[in-house]
Design a protein around this nucleic acid. Structure first.
Lengths: 233, 233
DNA sequence: CTAGACCATATTTTCGAAAATCATACCGTT
DNA sequence: AACGGTATGATTTTCGAAAATATGGTCTAG
């Protein structure tokens, strides 16, 4: 029996507000709600079936995450994109992720190694099964997120992990932005494999270098293929 | 004519929700609302004169900043404190602030130098005038915040500045926590002066080292004098 | 023809009542 | 006495109406 049979309203989290926050976040990251799009209450009300104030709570939370732009007395809109913002997010990600990889490699135990290996394995399975544009596949997105999450999960700082997760989401939105115009994805599978091996063999310097390249080349890709969307701001 | 004559409701920001977010943030940082304190709506309603939903919006925003703990279906409370949390905030601050100081020293122009010098000057003036417990003085708090803000203001990344500001607020709460038990403040004035000089003379390595010591010794102080508040968790 | 004031409409923001949920005390049963 | 279920009160969460504010267009004066 599919549990969708008993799905009255809420799916993620117990409150409607938390659920809508989650759904809105996903739609913004996937660019189903395009950057700069005004978020008017009557439209959202129809789309999500919630009241003004519940929607307002969700939008306020997303504004704090940097995915929504709150313009006082003039409503909300999806956070706009810009080349500068992409650069800042990339730099911040490198700064944080490099530190967390180092800490994880130093502190990671058996469970951490297992998590890294198994999340990569699942990611590769999904890529085999369906070797085309991966960002269109929700399962690939989840598996990709979980692999990168696993890599840093042993760092020991919930504070830095939360910051990292926020930056990851904001970067993922930019990847979606360029996904429709990118001719063919480069060899991410190979990069992920190499990162995993460096991490498991506790070669921190190599892992750090690979991660930085991974993040920066992804951003370069976005800047190239979404250039027409970044310069019109 | 003082503009307080025409202050019907709002003070900071144009919406009541933004105003209440600001006021709640200040009270939490100052530990006027102590860590772990339940934030019940009828109490807040009386204290701030706003409705349920407006308060809810403010609390949701503060939860995203890490100052409030949202327990789904069971309300909100002031974020609890712990030794582990203090360590994480301190480490994260060092990571970010060190990077931002470097960038600011490299990129800062004349206006940056002027901002650093003038904010420190104001801070010293306030300290002369009233040499006792500085955290009790709202003016000192603002001046202190502005000096540290000025130091990193030329870094060129609004993204990292926002992260830094959040961590600064969370750290300031811990400083307030121990302020009542600390016998006498150490020589912060001298430290600030040395940091300013290193920054202005573009000695990045020295400035970075001084900032790191500044942050860590402050945290050590908190851990010492607020120990009884951190271990009971 | 332009600038500014004014009105009408669209949209956001706020409110308190009502619904949903949780915590507690009570009661009956074993 | 211990346990489990249930009623009751306390608290949070959600809703749509009402108030506040912005937007866009029209008219008038210069």
């Amino acid at each position: 029996m599919p549990d969708s049979a008993i799905r009255p309203r809420k799916e993620f989290g117990k409150t409607i507000a938390a659920d809508i926050t989650h759904r809105l976040r996903e739609e913004i990251i996937a660019c189903a709600l395009p950057p700069g799009e005004p978020l008017r209450f009557d439209v959202l009300r129809e789309r999500f079936g919630a009241s003004f104030t519940t929607l307002r709570e969700a939008l306020t939370a997303l504004a704090a995450e940097g995915l929504v732009d709150a313009q006082e007395q003039r409503g909300f809109r999806v956070a706009p994109v810009s080349r500068q913002d992409l650069i800042e997010i990339t730099d911040a990600r490198v700064l944080v992720e490099v530190e967390l990889i180092r800490r994880s490699i130093q502190r990671g135990d058996d469970d951490w190694e297992i998590a890294v290996i198994s999340t990569l394995h699942r990611l590769k399975r999904i890529e085999q099964r369906d070797p085309e544009h991966p960002l269109r596949d929700p399962e690939w997105k989840i598996a990709h997120r979980q692999f990168h999450q696993a890599l840093v999960s042993a760092c020991g700082s919930a504070t830095l992990l939360a910051i990292r997760a926020e930056l990851f989401d904001r970067a993922e939105r930019y990847r979606h932005l360029s996904a429709n115009f990118r001719p063919r994805p480069r060899d991410k599978a190979g990069e992920h494999q190499a990162i995993m091996q460096a991490a498991i063999s506790r070669n921190a310097d190599l892992a750090v270098q690979l991660i930085e390249t991974h993040i920066r080349s992804t951003a370069d890709n976005v800047a190239t293929y979404a250039a027409h969307l970044l310069d019109t701001e």
